[in-house]
């Protein structure tokens, strides 16, 4: 085992250890906090596929996070109100169905956004993904059927067959297992032929084209997969808070997802996990001490960008083998 694998394993186990330790010492609140970490980590794992492997700096992943959230909220709302969708399709409170719908919806939207954005590169790509996410954000605000600006609450957490999702630790385990699945997907993608082509597209597009691979299709596929993983996390996030609001779609959310990745280490397997643990703890502890925690978050971020490149994983496991 090399240092990178060891670090990854340690971080993933640490995340499992947080709720266990919390329950053993009676600090049950930290179980919910750990669920939040797992969900944000999963969202960032999704973004890490596009950003870390493909070099696609999407500043609009909140769109997919929010679409996942709204999939959960809207399906549950229709199920609770006993109001079928047009064409007579019923709503549902079943998590697996919700996850599927969330990922499909985000995948379709990502294919559309990606098809336009990926023709551009650099700053254009950053700004266009941002603008598309804003478009969806404003649509969610001004479209009143599902709460508009006020958001939509999910009065009872959605169900998973055979387990009680209302129990915080059970819900944490669901999030944690999905995070592991997401990490496994990232790991397999990175070392696959597809992943090699994707990373080559980031490193040297011309050479990739010279060996006969068109970067466009590869990037688009990566963008869509990335969006689907982030949407799955969004659906979980809505269930965690039992609430979905346009703020899930806001550009601050997109920024936070990027922050998680950079804090943890760009393109590293366990980067999002490390980033999410640090970010949530930071938010919780500093938020408890001072109202101005965002000021300190800003200063820390600035410090990380300017002086500590490579993030937490870079610090623990050394530089990436190739970047």
């Amino acid at each position: 085992m090399n240092r990178e694998t060891l670090t990854s394993a340690a971080l993933v186990l640490l995340l499992l250890g947080i709720p266990l330790a919390a329950m053993a010492t009676g600090h049950n609140f930290y179980v919910t906090l750990a669920s939040r970490m797992a969900i944000l980590a999963l969202a960032a794992v999704g973004l890490n596929i596009a950003l870390g492997l493909g070099g696609l700096v999407s500043f609009g992943h909140a769109a997919f996070f929010g679409i996942g959230g709204y999939a959960a909220g809207v399906l549950a709302w229709h199920a609770m109100m006993l109001q079928p969708f047009p064409l007579g399709l019923p709503g549902t409170k079943l998590m697996p169905v919700i996850w599927l719908v969330a990922m499909l919806a985000a995948g379709i939207v990502a294919a559309f956004i990606g098809a336009i954005s990926i023709r551009t590169s650099g700053v254009y790509f950053i700004m266009i993904t941002l603008a598309f996410a804003q478009m969806i954000y404003y649509f969610a605000i001004s479209f009143p059927s599902y709460g508009g600006e006020d958001g939509l609450s999910i009065s009872l957490r959605n169900a998973f067959p055979g387990v009680n999702t209302l129990d915080p630790f059970t819900f944490f385990l669901i999030c944690y297992l999905l995070l592991l699945a997401g990490l496994f997907l990232f790991f397999r993608l990175r070392d696959s032929r597809f992943g090699a082509a994707l990373q080559a597209a980031r490193q040297n597009e011309t050479r990739l084209a010279a060996v006969g691979v068109s970067p466009f299709g590869i990037r688009l596929a990566a963008f869509v997969i990335s969006a689907m993983v982030t949407a799955l996390a969004g659906a979980l996030y809505a269930d965690l808070n039992r609430f979905v609001a346009p703020s899930m779609l806001s550009w601050h959310m997109s920024g936070e997802l990027i922050v998680l990745i950079i804090l943890g280490g760009t393109g590293r397997l366990a980067g999002p996990v490390a980033g999410a643990i640090v970010f949530v703890l930071f938010e919780h502890w500093l938020g408890g001490i001072t109202e101005r925690w965002q000021l300190y978050l800003g200063l820390v971020l600035l410090g990380v960008v300017l002086f500590a490149r490579g993030g937490v994983v870079g610090l623990l496991a050394g530089k990436a083998r190739h970047g």
Binding site: L51, V57, I258, V259, I262, G298, L301
Partner: peptide, 13 residues
């Protein structure tokens, strides 16, 4: 650009 985005995002905060 990624570093620029992040550092100026931090400046906003």
């Amino acid at each position: 650009h990624l570093d620029q985005v992040l550092a100026t995002f931090a400046l906003i905060l």
